[in-house]
């Protein structure tokens, strides 16, 4: 068991100081990249660092960061979810429909979270008890949710949302609520992952299932729980996503699952399971927003946007691999 635990950053205090920094390396690299980007683009066009634009960068991708928290837990436990984009699309539509049809606002906020938990607990059960690989279950769910959503809504836009429902447009101390959600949830989950027994369980399962089982961890139940928690975060992300504007498109946002997975992975969550933190994935989501914004500021043709993203993922992952090799 201890072998599988030592890969987690939580084991860092036992290491020499520079190693401790290196164990959090991905977070520092991302923070450095965000700062470097801000400085470079800020020199080219100071308006990039204007309060409005920075707010927009932090708030714009907050729902991705929130979804990436849950995704990180799933990946750390050694699984994957490629249906999260479709799930968010469905939950956002449910939330919007409740809001416009006169149900209490709190229900419109809460329902997506509850439904997300139920749906993903089902997914988790298929994965844990029937031993179907998570990529297969979620690939199937992707089709079912996406096709089902369009069958039911025909993609009719939801408009006339009540003003007090639009939680993503609320501000506290001048800072938009999605930023609060992102920061508080990230901090809570990071602490919880590091200090709670269940957090360690997730790392243990992802690190070495058999060892975890031998150590007395109830692997199946924990797996279902991880997926259920992931569903709750997808629900929160869906509410933030739905209330950002005054209309909801009621379709599945294109490629959202790829963006969320990419944020987790670039944030340092190892796809092999067992390592990573949610701070990294949140920083990665912010970095993506900063890049998208800076492309416009630097007059880079949007034709090249995807190349830049791909190159960036590749570089971070290669850097991470090099760092891990050094650590060994």
């Amino acid at each position: 068991m201890s072998a599988s635990l030592s890969t987690a950053p939580r084991a860092a205090p036992a290491m020499r100081p520079w190693k401790r920094i290196a164990a959090y390396g991905q977070e520092f690299i991302l923070l450095g990249a965000i700062l470097a980007l801000c400085i470079v683009v800020g020199i080219v066009n100071p308006r990039f660092l204007g309060a409005n634009n920075l707010t927009n960068i932090f708030a714009g991708n907050a729902y991705i960061a929130v979804a990436a928290i849950g995704m990180s837990l799933v990946i750390i436990s050694g699984h994957i979810d490629v249906a999260v984009g479709s799930l968010i699309g469905v939950l956002a539509t449910v939330s919007g429909l409740l809001a416009v049809n006169g149900y209490p606002i709190w229900l419109a906020w809460l329902a997506p979270i509850v439904i997300g938990v139920i749906v993903n607990a089902g997914v988790g059960s298929l994965v844990a008890y029937l031993r179907i690989p998570s990529i297969v279950v979620t690939l199937g769910m992707l089709s079912i949710l996406k096709g089902g959503l369009i069958s039911i809504t025909s993609g009719a836009w939801i408009t006339n949302l009540p003003e007090n429902y639009l939680i993503a447009q609320f501000r506290l101390f001048g800072i938009p609520s999605p930023v609060w959600f992102m920061v508080i949830l990230t901090a809570l989950v990071a602490l919880w992952m590091r200090y709670s027994a269940f957090g360690r369980t997730i790392y243990a399962i992802g690190g070495n299932v058999e060892a975890a089982r031998v150590a007395g961890i109830r692997v199946e139940r924990s797996t279902v729980l991880v997926f259920a928690i992931h569903g709750a975060f997808a629900g929160i992300a869906a509410v933030l996503f739905a209330t950002q504007l005054q209309v909801i498109q009621s379709t599945v946002p294109p490629n959202l699952e790829l963006t969320v997975i990419t944020a987790s992975v670039v944030g340092g969550v190892s796809i092999l399971g067992g390592t990573g933190t949610v701070i990294g994935s949140t920083l990665a989501a912010i970095l993506f927003a900063a890049i998208a914004s800076s492309l416009i500021f630097l007059n880079v043709s949007a034709y090249w946007l995807r190349s830049v993203q791909g190159l960036l993922i590749l570089i971070t992952v290669l850097a991470d691999m090099a760092r891990r090799r050094r650590l060994r």
């Binding site: 990249a33 043709s301 971070t316």
Partner: peptide
């Protein structure tokens, strides 16, 4: 050294790809 080189690689990669983007963006 390692971290520096990683940061450098990251910066270079970003810079190069963005410059190439700018070069192509002229008449668009």
């Amino acid at each position: 050294m390692l971290k520096k080189s990683i940061a450098l690689a990251l910066g270079l990669g970003l810079g190069v790809s963005m410059c190439s983007g700018v070069a192509f963006a002229a008449t668009w």
